[in-house]
Amino acid sequence: MNHFGWRAWPWLILAVWAFLALFGARLAIDPNQIDLQAILRPPGAADWFGADALGRPVAARLIAGAGTAFHVAFSVILISAILGSLLGAMAAWRGGWLDRLLSLLVDLLMAFPGILLAIALASILGPGLNNLVIALSVVGWVGYARLARAQILSLKTSEHVLAAKALGVGEGVIVLRHLLPLAAAPLLVEATFGVASVVVAEAGLSFLGLGMQPPDASWGSMIRDGARYMLVAPHLVAAPGLAIFIVVLAVNIVGDRLRDAWDPRHR
């Protein structure tokens, strides 16, 4: 493979992930189809991924898990990045009590290790995909708010903003059109790494039994179920494990590259 093609592999992984997540349901294999003849069947030439402890096809469950991870990751990142950036930007722009209130809230939420708060929230809200998205978004917006606030604070006295103010531009327009775009690069890098951490968090919560509920598939719950049969059927842990690892690795590499492109000090 030429140099360019080799460097493109993380994007290729992400494209495959997105494709399976969006169109996997149409691939006509039912991930919950129980086949008692196939229980714990190891991977073979005909079926590359084998079957799980209930005889369900691991390949179809991997695809369903890709959908779960994709759905949760993009919902959480969209909600928390947009909400967090807007809140942080508004607080920095307005200052005063709004800023103090936001900073206090951020400090409070930062007093909890993120995954711990997500676990507590998910356990109180009850299991399920939507509650998982809510729990991870409640935890997730804080980072974007902090980052956006810091960026806007350093930008709000710049001359183009003063000029816009002098021209009588409304403050919503100033924040959205003249400030946030300048702060977009670090926020986008943060959001990219965010995709990786949400994929891990979703799988982790499902591993703990707090995310997707049986029979629906998540990479995390596949690892949890497979761990019991590890000695006889290691593919049940290896397959979803490899899926998580490759996706997270690809996202992290893309994140590193974006950061290097915008902030050459990291190179």
Partner: peptide, 17 residues
């Protein structure tokens, strides 16, 4: 990079195995 990308709940079972 690999260390950052392998979650605890995957590494743990692999090490046990």
């Amino acid at each position: 990079l690999i260390g950052v990308s392998v979650p605890n709940f995957l590494l743990g079972p692999l090490l046990i195995l």
